[in-house]
Nucleic acid binder design. Structure first.
Lengths: 236, 236
DNA sequence: CGAATAGTGTCTTTTAGACACTATCGG
DNA sequence: CCGATAGTGTCTAAAAGACACTATTCG
C-alpha cells in the first residue's frame, strides 16, 4: 500500500494524456471613439501570420495562479501593470487547435489606451471590434472575441465598469459616450447622470474641463467598481 | 522553414511543462427541505479518504468538449443525463494540489433528487451545505463549494433557475420554498407569485394538488430558463 | 366553524424613461 | 446674442415591498 508521500514521489504528469492549456486575453480600449481590441500577428505555427488574441501558456515557474498568467501577458503586450481584469470562460474541445484537444481560459481587460507603452506594440495592433468580425482570426478566436464582448456589454448594463477605460478624471458626458460606444446605442442623458450620481459610483471634483463650449465638471471614480451592481440594468 | 504540416507532425505536447487539468462538479439537490451537495470519498492519493467534489480528468477520447466531460461525470455519479449545468470558473495555482500546478474547471448542476439512480451512490453521499462548511474537504474544495453556492445564489436573485430542482409540476408555494432554502431567507409571497406569473416563466396547469389543507394549483415551467433574466433582482 | 394553507387587492417605494426646460461659454 | 454643449425639473411607467384581506379545504 502506497503512502501519500510515496505516491507523490512517483507522480509524473506526463504519463497522463492531458489536453493543452492556454490563457487568451481580450484587451479592450477606446481609440478614436471606437471600441478596439488588441490583436497580435502569430509568429509561429499553427495559424502562422494570422491575427490572434494575445495569450499563451501558463508558466509554472513565473505564475502563482491563472490571474498572474493573464496579468503577465497583459503587461508584456501593453506595459500596463494594473487594470480591470475578469475571467470570462474556459473553452475546450477536440477541434479548436490542430495540435489536439485544447483548453483556453479567456480573460478580458479594460485599459486606458493613453497608458499603453507604444514601444511594446511591435507585432500587435488595435482593431475596432466592428472590423474584427470580418477578419478570420487564428483558431476559434473570432468566437472568443464575441464572448468577451458579450460579457463586457452585459457588465456595462449592470455596473459602472467602463470607467476603467477612462483616465482618473472625466466628465459625465465622456463617461456616457464610453457606455454608448460599448453598447452601440444612445442612452438618455438624464437617467444616465442620475444613475451614476445617486448610486455614488462617481464623485464630483472641484475641477472643470473646457471642451469647446460650456465647461463640464470633472468627476472621479469613488472606487466601488469591481462588485457594485446597480439595482436595475440600463433599459432603453 | 517548417510548413504547418511538418510542425504539427513533430508536435509533442509532452515536451511542454503544462499544468494538470481537471473538471470538478458542484451537484446540488434539495433533500429534506435543505440544499444538499453531492460529495464522494476519495479512493486514491492524494487526500485519500477525504470527501471531495465529484470530478476528474478530461478524456480526450470520450469528450468532445469540456461540457461533455462535466455531463459524463454527472451521469456517472447520479445517473442523470440532462439537467441544468453551468460553468462557474476555472481555478488554477501552484498550491491547490500536491501533485503540482493544477487547474480545475468548476461546474455546477441542479437536479431533482427523485431522478437520481440510488444504486450509483456507492461511495458518494448528499450533504447539507451548512454542514459542508465545517468538514475539511480534499484540496481546495471548500473554496470551490463556496464559489458554486455563490453563483447559484446570485442566479437565484435574477432568474427562475431553481425550477430545475423541482419535478415537472409544482405549486408556487413549493417553488417559493426552494428559493427560500437557497437564499436562506423568507421572501414576500405576493411579489414572488406576481414576479413568476407576470414574467411568464411559469404556466398554470388545470391540475391541483392536495397538500393537507387548501389545494394548490400546479404550475409548469414555460421553458424560458437558461437565459431569462427578470428586469430586477429579488430584493428583500 | 376554526385552523391552516393558498392566494389577492391595493397602496407605497424605488428607479427608470420622456421631454421640455435652463445654464454657461466662445465667438 | 446665437449656437452648441452641459445639465436639471418634473411627470409618468414598471416592478418591487408592505400588509391587510379573502378563499378553500380538512377535521
Amino acid at each position: 500500500m502506497l503512502t501519500e508521500k510515496q505516491f507523490l514521489d512517483d507522480y509524473d504528469i506526463h504519463q497522463y494524456n492531458i489536453p493543452l492549456i492556454t490563457v487568451d486575453m481580450g484587451i479592450f480600449s477606446i481609440i478614436d471613439q471606437q471600441l478596439n481590441i488588441l490583436l497580435i500577428q502569430r509568429e509561429s505555427h499553427p495559424d502562422k501570420t494570422k491575427l490572434a488574441l494575445p495569450g499563451g501558456f501558463i508558466s509554472k515557474d513565473k505564475d502563482k495562479n491563472i490571474e498572474a498568467t493573464a496579468l503577465r501577458k497583459l503587461k508584456k503586450k501593453t506595459g500596463v501593470k494594473l487594470s480591470y481584469l475578469e475571467q470570462v470562460e474556459s473553452i475546450g474541445n477536440a477541434t479548436r487547435d490542430p495540435r489536439g484537444w485544447s483548453v483556453t481560459i479567456l480573460y478580458f481587460a479594460l485599459i486606458d489606451s493613453n497608458k499603453v507603452n507604444k514601444k511594446l506594440l511591435q507585432n500587435s495592433s488595435w482593431h475596432p471590434i466592428d472590423e474584427v468580425k470580418h477578419i478570420p482570426l487564428a483558431f476559434d478566436h473570432n468566437l472568443l472575441v464575441k464572448k468577451a464582448i458579450k460579457r463586457l456589454r452585459s457588465k456595462t448594463l449592470y455596473t459602472a465598469l467602463p470607467m476603467a477605460l477612462l483616465p482618473e478624471r472625466f466628465t459625465l458626458t465622456e463617461l456616457q459616450t464610453i457606455f454608448e460606444i460599448i453598447l452601440a446605442r444612445k442612452l438618455p442623458v438624464k437617467s444616465f447622470r442620475r444613475r451614476m450620481i445617486d448610486a455614488g459610483v462617481v464623485e464630483a471634483t472641484d475641477e472643470s474641463k473646457i471642451s469647446g463650449k460650456r465647461t463640464a465638471k470633472l468627476y472621479k471614480s469613488t472606487g466601488i467598481k469591481k462588485d457594485f451592481y446597480f439595482p436595475r440594468p440600463l433599459q432603453k
